Computed example of a mutant assay.
Amino acid sequence: MRVTIADVARAAGVSKTTVSRVLNTKADVDRSTASRVREVIAHLGYVPSSGAVGLARGSSRTVGMLVPSLTWSWMGEVLQGVVDTVEAAEYGLLLFTCNRGAESVRRFTTQVSARAFDGLVVVEPENTLGHLTAFHRSGLPIVLIDDRGHHPEFPSVATTNHEGAASAARHLHADGRTRPLVLTGPAHYGCVRERLDGFRSVLPDARVVRGDFTERGGERAMAGLLDAGIPFDSVFAHNDVTATGALRALHAAGRRVPDDVAVIGFDDIPMAAHTAPPLTTVRQPTRAMGETAARMLLAHLGGTPAPDEPVVLPTELVVRRSAP
């Protein structure tokens, strides 16, 4: 049977609070009492949990991470960046998703109230901004990995969506493509607006088709355009998953890539190098974004003020055979 702090308190004839103060080397416990408590601890073989000691000190040495879902194509790389950084600092990580909507948010809120973690890295799930704002104002340190649009109240890490999309447009323009098509993601994402603005800053006459960031959505949109006889010689998809669906529809229609249609994606997820043909894409530094957000949060927990402006990491155009 595991020895508890209550067992130590009972055997030493003191309160659990006193045992906790001895464990955390508080100076307000007299020497004889502290010595007796330590002797009981040694005799009973009590091993305090790091979480219990941390909470008594006002710190759990645990970081939380809140994300919409682990099924997002680039989420694994972001998460790995956070994990690597947090573990190197000898912190634990609690991961929360919003797969169950309001129920997930309620459970997460309970963990915040219980002070289960010291700070939070967030890829903002839908319908959580109000909760996050309230937590932040009440003193919970939060760093956003921001793809929905800049929220100046929070420290954040972002990437150069505008410039990344502009680099894709310049690449297509240099290849002589004059009838570009843009397959976007959902309009309420800040990254979608930035990518569309960036592409249009170079190729303002591009035809725009709203998408949903899914492979099936990219395939459906492309098939519909082909069936309608819409003329285009190039495609810029707002993520690699959409681009993969577009490639499938082009192949099914007998269009050659890149001879007939050049295709560029965004993100550079692992499968981008293995599509047919391999996908030219704008590489988003997803692991570095996770690492940077975690470092910012840990520094803040250590007393360093969070930066007032977003930390913006650069994108990079990766040229492969779909748009050489």
Rank of each mutant, 00 (worst) to 15 (best):
Arg2Gln: 13
Ile5Gln: 11
Val8Gly: 03
Ala9Phe: 12
Thr18Ser: 09
Val22Trp: 06
Asp28Glu: 10
Val29Met: 07
Asp30Ile: 11
Ser32Lys: 13
Thr33Ala: 10
Ala34Gly: 12
Arg38Ala: 09
Glu39His: 13
Glu39Gln: 13
Val40Leu: 13
His43Ser: 15
Tyr46Lys: 08
Ser50Gly: 12
Ala56His: 11
Gly58Trp: 09
Gly58Thr: 03
Ser60Met: 05
Arg61Val: 03
Thr62Cys: 14
Met65Gly: 05
Val67Glu: 00
Val67Thr: 11
Ser73Ile: 02
Met75Gly: 01
Leu79Met: 14
Leu79Lys: 01
Asp84Pro: 03
Thr85Ile: 07
Thr85Leu: 07
Val86Gly: 09
Glu90His: 12
Leu93Asp: 05
Leu95Cys: 08
Cys98Val: 08
Cys98Glu: 08
Ala102Val: 11
Glu103Asp: 15
Ser104Leu: 10
Val105Lys: 15
Val105Cys: 08
Thr109Phe: 08
Thr110Tyr: 09
Thr110Asp: 13
Arg115Asp: 08
Phe117Arg: 02
Phe117Pro: 01
Val121Ser: 06
Asn127Cys: 05
Gly130His: 10
Arg137Asn: 13
Arg137Val: 10
Arg137Ser: 14
Ser138Trp: 12
Gly139Pro: 07
Pro141Lys: 07
Leu144Ser: 01
Asp146Glu: 15
Asp147Ala: 13
Pro152Trp: 08
Ser156His: 08
Ala158Lys: 04
Ala158Ser: 14
Thr160Asn: 03
His162Leu: 14
Ala166His: 04
His171Tyr: 04
Leu172Arg: 02
Asp175Met: 15
Arg177Phe: 02
Arg179Lys: 15
Leu181Ala: 12
Thr184Asp: 06
Pro186Trp: 09
Pro186Gln: 11
Tyr189Ala: 06
Gly190Phe: 05
Cys191Ile: 14
Val192His: 10
Val209Asn: 09
Asp212Pro: 03
Asp212Asn: 10
Phe213Gly: 05
Thr214Leu: 09
Thr214Asn: 08
Arg216Pro: 03
Gly217Asp: 09
Gly218Lys: 03
Ala221Asn: 09
Ala221Phe: 04
Ala223Gln: 12
Leu225Ile: 11
Asp227Tyr: 00
Asp227Arg: 11
Ala228Trp: 03
Gly229Asn: 10
Ile230Asp: 13
Ile230Asn: 10
Pro231Gly: 08
Ala237Asn: 03
Asn239Arg: 01
Ala243Gln: 00
Gly245Val: 06
Ala246Ser: 10
Ala246Trp: 01
Leu247Ser: 00
His251Asp: 12
Pro258Thr: 06
Asp259Cys: 10
Asp260Thr: 10
Val261Trp: 12
Phe266Ala: 05
Pro270Ser: 08
His274Tyr: 15
His274Glu: 13
Thr275Gly: 04
Leu279Pro: 00
Leu279Val: 06
Thr280Gln: 02
Thr281Met: 02
Val282Pro: 00
Arg283Asp: 00
Pro285Asp: 04
Arg287Ser: 12
Ala288Trp: 00
Glu291Arg: 12
Gly303Pro: 01
Pro307Phe: 02
Pro307Val: 06
Pro307Trp: 01
Pro310Val: 05
Val311Ala: 08
Val312Tyr: 00
Pro314Asn: 05
Leu317His: 00
Arg320Gln: 06
Ala323Asn: 04
Pro324Cys: 07
